[in-house]
Nucleic acid binder design. Structure first.
Length: 495
RNA sequence: GGCGACAUGGCCGAGUGGCUAGGCAGAGGUCUGCAAAACCUUGUACGGCGGUUCGAAUCCGCCUGUCGCCUCCA
């Protein structure tokens, strides 16, 4: 049993609230997905790893989660210029391919990189282009209900007609009108009104027929339409990056609630961002390091490559609502920390209890309840993975010591089972470094030759021929093969 | 300009009105032919100025600084 019930920070109320699903044990969760016009970067990883752990923890608590995450394959406007241009279309023009090819490529690389980070796939990954009819239907509904108006092939949402517009982001409509958008699209009733449907000109590559002419959907409608389609009009969790709070999520709420007449998502969760040299890491800012570049070390700002598990662990060591400042020094610390945590946990998992020990130590040395309570207490506090991980560090080292000194806890078997679940199923971390000894050899000959060298070196060491044994170790190190001597024999790690 | 966050020791990073966060790095030690690993010991902290309080890094106010949103963005 957990020591306290799950509380989540709800952006709507700006407080931590008790988490009470609308239809327990079912939990509906929608997270804003990527716009697939480029490789995913560290910022995406922060968001999707965060929500991945949230989803995993909810499952651990025995909720039946349906996790929906859109793929935005209709580009929206690019940053510069008043008119702007569809991001995916722009990239398509540059690369002389169909926009759908771009979307396809980066959808693939997105999932590839998320898989590497051990992010579980969404239950449903709806594509915006696959839900044009749903979006058109919602727009029509909004027009019918007087929340939207048609001007020259464009449909705009009338924000003054939405009673709670601004509630999520803490803005009022009067102030919203003083923004920079005034100069754009002068045909709007109110400068802050936003587009539901845009008329497409001849040059526009992605466009669809609609009751209002040929065009493409506005910037926010897909999430409202698709979340409602798969999760219902009122569902539990809506998540996304903090920069989407306004205008994206505000607009989503306005569209959805004005259309359905019901309250939209119950809990709004926002992750904070990754910074690089104190600046937000973003594709449009040109300072984003892609995940692929982390994994293979190819970015000029990186000294070396980084294991996806290290990236994941690094992200989980800070809270999802805090900014994560990136540096390779911090990654190095995460790598060393992960390694030592794994090794502590591994030595607990590997221990085979012996019966006479159990009889000797079965009085009051159960350690699982304590560990579990501390871990769950951290996770129940708005998914505080940093504290949960600190708990693991702290407790597993102590447990390991007890085992080494011949005093294994009496609930060792249950402890081992839970520890494995906590590490792999909740945090999504592998228990130990994958054994490269077998998988990294291209042929058995290399493996046999290495074993031969190690045998020769062992013999040399036995005969105190340390000069020779050190030469072997040094030369292998030049090949990025590291040898470590232990009581059980010589271990090696391959490059 | 409007709205909103954040400022913790060499680095990363939790947290709380009084009780060791944790990790990494550093220092010393044990072990080992030496490395490595492992283990033991160990220091440095809460941006500034006021206020509330028996007591604040933790609450309040002001200041300074950094960042985010207000334009697509995880």
């Amino acid at each position: 049993m957990s020591s306290s019930a799950l509380h989540v920070y709800n952006t709507l109320s700006r407080k931590k609230e008790l988490f009470e699903p609308i239809h327990a044990p079912h939990v509906g969760m929608y997270v804003c997905g990527p716009t697939v016009y480029g490789n995913a970067h560290l910022g995406h990883a922060k968001s999707y790893v965060s929500f991945d752990v949230i989803r995993r923890y909810l499952s651990y608590l025995d909720y039946k989660v349906r996790y929906v995450q859109n793929i935005t394959d209709v580009g929206h406007l690019v940053g510069d210029g008043d008119e702007g241009e569809d991001k995916i279309s722009k990239k398509a023009r540059l690369e002389q391919v169909d926009p759908m090819e771009i979307a396809e490529i980066y959808t693939y690389t997105y999932f590839r990189d998320m898989d590497a980070l051990s992010v579980q796939r969404p239950d449903i990954s709806p594509r915006a282009t696959g839900h044009i009819p749903e979006q058109i239907a919602m727009i029509q509904d909004l027009i019918d209900k007087g929340h939207a108006y048609l001007i020259d092939g464009n449909v705009y949402f009338d924000i003054l007609s939405a009673p709670n517009y601004g509630r999520l982001s803490g803005r009022n409509v009067e102030n919203a009108t003083s923004g920079t958008r005034i100069k754009a699209a002068s045909d709007k009733h109110n400068p802050a009104d936003f587009a539901l449907w845009k008329k497409a000109d001849d040059k526009h590559l992605m466009k669809w027929p609609s009751p209002w002419g040929v065009g493409y959907p506005g910037w926010h409608i897909e999430c409202s339409a698709m979340s409602i389609k798969y999760l219902g009009t009122h569902f539990d969790i809506h998540g996304g990056g903090i920069e989407n709070q306004f205008p994206h999520h505000e607009c989503e709420i306005a569209q959805a609630e004005c259309s359905t007449g019901k309250s939209f998502a119950k809990y709004w969760l926002h992750n904070n961002m990754v910074t690089l040299d104190g600046q937000k890491m973003g594709k449009s800012l040109g300072n984003a390091i892609s995940l692929e570049e982390f994994f293979n070390g190819s970015h000029p700002l990186l000294q070396r490559s980084w294991d996806p598990q290290v990236i994941r662990f690094f992200l989980l060591q800070s809270h999802y609502r805090s900014t994560t400042d990136f540096s390779e020094k911090a990654l190095e610390a995460a790598e060393a920390g992960l390694q030592s945590l794994r090794s502590a946990i591994e030595s607990i998992l590997m221990y085979i209890p012996q019966k006479h020990h159990d009889h000797k130590n079965d009085i009051n040395d159960k350690v699982l309840p304590n560990l579990k309570a501390a871990f769950e207490s951290a996770m129940n506090d708005d998914f505080n993975t940093a504290r949960a991980i600190a708990t693991l560090f702290d407790k597993t080292k102590k447990i390991k010591k007890k085992i080494i000194t011949g005093q294994p806890p009496s609930d060792l078997l249950a402890l081992q089972k839970w520890l494995k679940i906590a590490l792999t199923e909740i945090l999504g971390l592998e228990p130990n470094v994958p054994n490269k000894s077998d998988c990294n050899f291209n042929d058995n000959l290399s493996k046999d030759l290495l074993h031969l060298l190690i045998d020769i070196r062992t013999k040399a060491r036995m005969e105190r021929e340390f000069e020779l044994s050190d030469i072997i170790r040094d030369r292998l190190k030049d090949l990025d093969i590291d040898l470590e001597d232990s009581k059980e024999g010589t271990r090696y790690t391959l490059p």
